[in-house]
Computed example of a mutant assay.
Amino acid sequence: MDVAPGLDEVYRRLLDRVLTGFYPVGSKLPSCRALAAELGSNSSTVDRAIGRLAASGRVRTVPRRGTFVEQTDDAGTVDGRDVVARELDEVLVRARRLGFTAAEVTTLVEHALDRVGSMRRIAVVECNERDLRHVQELVQRASGVEVQPVLLADAAGRVLDEEFDAVACPIFHLNDIADLVRELDQVVELNLVASPSALRRLIGVRLEERIVVVAPSRRGVQWMIATVGQYYAGPIEGVEVGPDSPDDPARLDGAPVLVVNNAATLPAGIEDRVGQIIPIEWELDGRFTTALRSRVESVISARLEAG
């Protein structure tokens, strides 16, 4: 009988995956249940192994959101070939114990290689970590394709449509990724709208004398004004708050309502100096969601046909 891998083995395998980039920095780990099923262990052992990773600063668990790989100062790396060789040895030993012949194992490997060869590599690009994780989950759920998150700040100098079969990003970031792809035709535009909960709050302040919207860039401010303007008829003031923004954050003081996106960093203690703050969470436009899978496949097919 096969013995379920213990804590040390599960920890080593997860650590190997983190160090080799199998789980890239910023990516979300699968659930404990999913990892337990994959590794032949149990959820409790996986949870304890993840606890070790968290204690060493390799990962960070966010309540109700999941566990994410952290950037560390450790320069140590692991040769991915060594990791794969060890895991392959484990699989072959298990196959032998179960009575598989060499021919049967070869057939299984060939079928697995065929499946892996047909997998699509899709990137989703966003400007901040919170929206990136959220949009990644939305696209993955709607398209049925595994999605790799890419933060705009980490993408400088890369050519994303050479790394991935397709690149997805919100419409308001198309200009930001123009220099990160060779062909904008390889980009799947994501039509994002404010979440229903945010819209309900916007409607709830429709009688306020004014609203201030906050974003870290001028283009972001304009997009936020356009979004809020669909639900609020009064005066909307835009304030750009970011590392290099020209606007004075003191303009936010005394505002009856602040509407902010996740990319904006508000001044400390601002909650005590304004009436209320409404954060905007983005969702895929429902009319677009049903067509996303075919849009992704269309982009990939066009690329394959082009050579």
Score class of each variant (00 low, 15 high):
212 V>P: 01
65 R>W: 06
202 L>C: 02
109 V>W: 07
38 E>H: 05
250 A>R: 15
114 D>S: 09
223 W>P: 02
127 C>K: 03
121 R>L: 11
211 I>T: 02
266 L>T: 03
203 I>N: 08
305 E>M: 09
3 V>M: 10
73 D>S: 12
301 S>V: 01
93 V>Q: 11
92 L>V: 14
181 V>F: 07
180 L>V: 02
117 G>Y: 05
24 P>N: 12
20 T>G: 12
137 E>M: 11
269 G>Y: 04
36 A>Q: 11
249 P>F: 05
286 G>R: 15
282 W>E: 01
16 D>W: 15
135 V>N: 02
49 A>I: 08
198 A>N: 08
292 L>N: 00
85 A>D: 10
128 N>E: 15
84 V>L: 14
150 V>W: 06
274 V>T: 01
63 P>V: 10
146 E>K: 10
101 T>N: 12
25 V>I: 14
129 E>T: 12
134 H>C: 05
170 P>S: 04
29 L>A: 08
248 D>N: 15
18 V>N: 00
20 T>V: 15
16 D>I: 03
305 E>R: 14
268 A>E: 13
158 R>S: 14
195 S>Y: 01
222 Q>C: 07
180 L>P: 04
144 G>A: 10
64 R>E: 03
244 D>L: 12
113 L>M: 11
224 M>P: 00
239 V>I: 15
94 R>N: 06
105 V>I: 15
156 A>G: 03
39 L>S: 01
69 V>F: 02
186 Q>T: 08
158 R>M: 12
194 A>S: 12
205 V>A: 09
42 N>W: 07
283 E>T: 13
274 V>L: 02
11 Y>L: 06
245 S>E: 03
182 R>E: 00
23 Y>V: 01
165 D>G: 06
161 D>A: 04
185 D>P: 05
279 P>K: 07
239 V>D: 05
199 L>R: 15
248 D>L: 11
115 R>M: 08
237 E>Y: 10
187 V>H: 03
13 R>Y: 00
269 G>W: 05
271 E>P: 04
85 A>C: 02
290 T>P: 00
263 A>F: 04
145 V>W: 02
183 E>N: 13
118 S>D: 13
107 T>H: 11
248 D>S: 14
58 R>A: 06
228 V>Q: 02
286 G>W: 08
69 V>L: 06
237 E>F: 11
45 T>L: 04
206 R>K: 14
154 D>A: 13
88 L>I: 10
142 A>E: 15
112 A>P: 01
56 S>D: 15
22 F>H: 05
263 A>L: 04
11 Y>P: 04
298 S>K: 11
140 Q>L: 06
120 R>F: 07
212 V>D: 05
97 R>M: 10
85 A>K: 03
220 G>T: 01
169 C>V: 15
259 V>K: 04
209 E>N: 02
91 V>H: 10
19 L>C: 08
271 E>W: 02
151 L>S: 08
97 R>T: 10
173 H>I: 06
172 F>E: 13
280 I>C: 09
87 E>F: 04
41 S>N: 01
